[in-house]
Simulated assay, not measured.
Amino acid sequence: MDTVASRPHRLAATPTSRTMSIAARVYGYPPAHNAGSEWMLHSMLRPLAERGHRVTVWLSHPGTIETSYDIDGVRVIPTRRAPTSPPTPSARTCCCPTSRTSRSSPVSPPPAGSP
Protein backbone atom coordinates (compact mmCIF):
# COMPACT_ATOMS: atom_id res chain seq x y z
CA MET A 1 0.00 0.00 0.00
CA ASP A 2 1.41 3.34 -1.09
CA THR A 3 1.11 6.09 1.49
CA VAL A 4 2.38 9.61 1.50
CA ALA A 5 4.70 8.81 4.41
CA SER A 6 6.40 6.00 2.47
CA ARG A 7 7.25 8.17 -0.54
CA PRO A 8 10.71 9.69 -0.73
CA HIS A 9 10.93 13.35 0.16
CA ARG A 10 11.27 15.72 -2.81
CA LEU A 11 11.99 19.40 -2.81
CA ALA A 12 9.13 21.57 -4.00
CA ALA A 13 11.27 23.11 -6.72
CA THR A 14 13.83 21.00 -8.47
CA PRO A 15 16.57 22.87 -10.30
CA THR A 16 16.42 22.69 -14.06
CA SER A 17 18.69 23.89 -16.82
CA ARG A 18 15.96 26.12 -18.24
CA THR A 19 16.12 29.82 -17.51
CA MET A 20 13.35 32.34 -17.54
CA SER A 21 13.32 35.97 -18.60
CA ILE A 22 11.53 37.94 -15.92
CA ALA A 23 10.55 41.57 -16.40
CA ALA A 24 9.03 44.02 -13.96
CA ARG A 25 7.79 47.51 -14.78
CA VAL A 26 7.85 49.71 -11.71
CA TYR A 27 7.90 53.36 -10.73
CA GLY A 28 11.31 53.31 -9.06
CA TYR A 29 13.93 50.84 -7.83
CA PRO A 30 16.82 50.82 -5.35
CA PRO A 31 19.16 52.47 -4.71
CA ALA A 32 17.49 55.65 -6.02
CA HIS A 33 14.08 54.77 -4.50
CA ASN A 34 14.33 53.31 -1.02
CA ALA A 35 10.73 52.71 -0.02
CA GLY A 36 9.49 49.39 1.32
CA SER A 37 7.79 48.24 -1.87
CA GLU A 38 10.96 48.71 -3.93
CA TRP A 39 13.05 46.67 -1.50
CA MET A 40 10.34 44.02 -1.23
CA LEU A 41 10.38 43.62 -5.02
CA HIS A 42 14.17 43.43 -4.96
CA SER A 43 14.05 40.75 -2.26
CA MET A 44 11.82 38.68 -4.59
CA LEU A 45 13.82 39.27 -7.77
CA ARG A 46 17.34 38.83 -6.36
CA PRO A 47 16.98 35.07 -5.63
CA LEU A 48 15.67 34.52 -9.16
CA ALA A 49 18.73 36.27 -10.58
CA GLU A 50 20.96 34.19 -8.28
CA ARG A 51 19.41 31.02 -9.73
CA GLY A 52 20.48 32.11 -13.20
CA HIS A 53 17.29 33.67 -14.51
CA ARG A 54 17.50 36.88 -16.54
CA VAL A 55 15.76 39.53 -14.44
CA THR A 56 15.11 43.00 -15.84
CA VAL A 57 13.37 45.93 -14.18
CA TRP A 58 12.02 48.75 -16.36
CA LEU A 59 11.60 52.06 -14.56
CA SER A 60 8.62 54.16 -15.56
CA HIS A 61 9.86 57.24 -13.67
CA PRO A 62 13.66 57.04 -13.54
CA GLY A 63 14.16 60.55 -12.22
CA THR A 64 17.81 61.53 -12.71
CA ILE A 65 18.94 58.02 -13.66
CA GLU A 66 19.97 58.02 -17.31
CA THR A 67 21.89 54.77 -17.78
CA SER A 68 21.16 51.13 -17.05
CA TYR A 69 22.72 49.51 -14.01
CA ASP A 70 22.88 46.15 -12.21
CA ILE A 71 22.12 45.57 -8.56
CA ASP A 72 22.67 42.05 -7.18
CA GLY A 73 22.23 40.51 -10.63
CA VAL A 74 19.05 42.43 -11.44
CA ARG A 75 19.33 44.62 -14.55
CA VAL A 76 17.60 48.01 -14.14
CA ILE A 77 16.73 50.01 -17.26
CA PRO A 78 15.38 53.57 -17.10
CA THR A 79 12.78 54.34 -19.73
CA ARG A 80 12.01 57.77 -21.01
CA ARG A 81 8.64 58.52 -22.50
CA ALA A 82 8.36 60.90 -25.36
CA PRO A 83 6.69 64.11 -24.24
CA THR A 84 3.01 64.02 -24.99
CA SER A 85 0.95 66.96 -26.08
CA PRO A 86 -2.23 67.72 -24.20
CA PRO A 87 -5.32 66.01 -25.59
CA THR A 88 -7.05 67.94 -28.32
CA PRO A 89 -10.63 68.87 -27.57
CA SER A 90 -13.04 66.84 -29.61
CA ALA A 91 -16.35 68.00 -31.02
CA ARG A 92 -18.16 65.54 -28.80
CA THR A 93 -16.81 65.46 -25.27
CA CYS A 94 -19.95 64.21 -23.61
CA CYS A 95 -23.15 62.58 -24.80
CA CYS A 96 -25.22 64.13 -22.05
CA PRO A 97 -27.61 66.75 -23.57
CA THR A 98 -27.49 68.90 -20.45
CA SER A 99 -23.73 69.05 -20.35
CA ARG A 100 -22.33 72.56 -20.41
CA THR A 101 -18.92 71.28 -21.54
CA SER A 102 -20.25 69.91 -24.81
CA ARG A 103 -21.97 72.51 -26.92
CA SER A 104 -21.78 70.50 -30.12
CA SER A 105 -23.43 67.36 -28.80
CA PRO A 106 -25.37 65.49 -31.48
CA VAL A 107 -28.17 64.82 -28.99
CA SER A 108 -30.66 67.67 -28.90
CA PRO A 109 -32.50 68.54 -25.69
CA PRO A 110 -36.17 67.58 -25.40
CA PRO A 111 -38.67 70.19 -26.65
CA ALA A 112 -39.97 72.63 -24.08
CA GLY A 113 -43.10 71.47 -22.30
CA SER A 114 -42.56 67.74 -22.95
CA PRO A 115 -42.67 65.37 -19.95
Rank of each mutant, 00 (worst) to 15 (best):
R103A: 13
P89N: 11
P30V: 09
S43Y: 00
S104R: 15
V107R: 14
R75K: 07
P111T: 05
G113C: 13
A82C: 11
N34L: 09
R92K: 08
R25N: 02
G113Q: 14
A32Q: 09
H33R: 07
H61Y: 09
T79Y: 11
W39A: 03
P97H: 11
C94Q: 08
T64R: 15
T88K: 14
Y29F: 15
M40A: 11
Y29T: 02
R92M: 13
A32V: 09
A49M: 03
C96D: 13
R80E: 10
T79V: 06
N34W: 02
V55G: 04
A24E: 05
S68V: 03
P109I: 08
T101F: 15
T84M: 14
P87L: 10
S60D: 07
H42N: 02
L41G: 00
Y69Q: 03
P47R: 04
T101M: 15
I71R: 03
R81H: 12
R18T: 10
T64S: 14
S99E: 05
P47T: 04
G63N: 08
L59E: 07
M44S: 02
C94M: 08
C94V: 03
H61K: 12
M20K: 10
L48A: 11
P83I: 04
T93Y: 01
H42G: 03
I22Q: 01
H42D: 01
S60A: 14
M20V: 06
G52L: 06
W39Q: 05
T88F: 11
P110H: 14
P110N: 10
P30E: 07
R18Y: 04
T19S: 08
P111E: 08
S104N: 14
G36V: 03
R54E: 12
D70F: 10
A35P: 00
P110A: 15
A23N: 09
H42S: 02
I71K: 03
E38K: 00
H33A: 14
L45R: 02
V57L: 01
L45T: 05
T79H: 11
M44W: 04
A32W: 00
R103Q: 11
Y69P: 07
S90P: 08
S21Q: 10
D72L: 12
A23V: 12
T56R: 11
P110L: 14
T98M: 12
C95R: 13
S102Y: 02
S37R: 04
V74F: 02
W58L: 07
P111I: 06
D70G: 02
T88C: 12
T98E: 15
G113F: 15
T84I: 10
V57K: 01
V55W: 01
S21Y: 02
R25C: 11
V76A: 04
T67Y: 03
V57F: 03
S60C: 09
S43H: 01
I65S: 08
L48I: 03
Y29I: 00
P30R: 04
H33P: 02
S105P: 12
P86M: 13
S108D: 13
P111M: 10
M44P: 01
S21E: 11
P83L: 06
G113A: 15
P62W: 05
